[in-house]
């Protein structure tokens, strides 16, 4: 049993980390009332920046490179998300349309620059992050070997950030304002909260976290950048946002579950109960579950009230 857990849990953590990070970005944006279909594009941007930075500075910065790379990816992700913020907050563009455009733009820019800089459609491979033992914690009996041995430190960064996100959203004044803007922007505005400012911050945060998620995905799972590096992880993160009912910890739980479903298609054959299930069911499980969740089969998932509605001052 412990052997089994030891093979599954690190894999689940490994697959979930990028989803958790990106889903947290989605939570911030959607909680402020801006639908973010562009999570996929933000991840693409993050993956591109993460890989390019690592390739460029691997020799000079040594083992710290991937850590700096994900920070840079987060910053660029935030800047890139500003386009979505400008279009959907300032220009009152349809938020779904703007998100779709973000996805196309990110992939276009990423692959265009890859061809421009490297002369081919995909970059070389990088080393990225390595599996490590978490200091001290891996010595705890039973729990240590299962959770903290040969894991990626980024998985724990993701989990810690989820807790921080929960604290920010539910225990700080800023979080309260952000949520109120997503529920009833006019009431928030009347109380002197700048709807525009809060929504800008939320969308840029979603870019930061999406960039982080994309770069972590690229530097742990695929190790290079091409047009097929990020295929659907952003949409899966969006599913996690909804399945987790727009709550940071819920989104984390959902992302862990989806990571579990993904890892099953890899380690599933070693679990007796799941041996007979065709892989396709495990592949579609996250999406089917999200639909069921939305249809109210697994508890109701209600979106923030003002989600997707541009706020125009003075209109009712």
């Amino acid at each position: 049993m412990i052997d089994l857990l030891q093979s599954i849990i690190p894999t689940v953590l490994f697959f979930s980390a990028p989803l958790i990070l990106t889903a947290l970005g989605g939570v911030f944006s959607e909680r402020s009332g801006v639908v973010n279909i562009g999570l996929e594009g933000l991840m693409v941007m993050g993956a591109f920046v993460g890989i390019v930075f690592t390739l460029t500075f691997e020799d000079t910065l040594g083992s710290a490179t991937p850590w700096i790379a994900i920070v840079v990816a987060a910053v660029i992700g935030g800047i890139f998300a500003t386009i979505h913020a400008v279009a959907s907050v300032s220009f009152n563009a349809n938020q779904v349309v703007s998100g779709v455009a973000i996805n196309m733009l990110a992939l276009g820019v990423g692959v265009y620059l890859t061809k421009q800089w490297y002369g081919k459609g995909q970059t070389d491979m990088v080393d990225g992050f390595f599996r490590t033992d978490i200091p001290y914690l891996h010595k705890i009996p039973v729990i240590g070997p299962i959770f903290f041995e040969r894991v990626y430190a980024t998985s724990y960064v993701a989990i810690i950030l989820a807790v921080i996100a929960w604290y920010v959203l539910y225990k700080t004044a800023f979080g309260l304002r952000l949520r109120s803007v997503g529920e009833h922007p006019m009431a928030a505005d009347t109380n002197g909260i700048s709807v525009t400012k809060i929504r800008y911050i939320a969308v840029i945060l979603s870019g930061v976290l999406g960039g982080l998620g994309g770069s972590v995905f690229a530097l742990t799972i695929v190790s290079n950048f091409s047009h097929s590096t990020i295929v659907g992880q952003g949409f899966m993160a969006l599913a996690a946002v909804i399945f987790g009912k727009w709550h940071p910890l819920g989104a984390m739980g959902a992302a862990l579950f989806f990571g579990f479903a993904q890892s099953l298609s890899i380690v599933g054959s070693s679990i007796p109960l799941l041996e007979g299930i065709p892989q396709v069911f495990l592949l579609i499980a996250p999406y089917v579950l999200t639909i069921l969740a939305l249809a109210g089969v697994i508890g109701r998932a209600d979106a923030p009230k003002a989600n997707g509605v541009p706020y125009i001052k003075g209109s009712r």
Partner: peptide, 22 residues
Amino acid sequence: VPTELVDIIIALIIFFVASSYI
């Protein structure tokens, strides 16, 4: 010129149409 230029152009066209307000 890489073919992806056209994807960038199309994405920008969508942005411009979507931001028709401005």
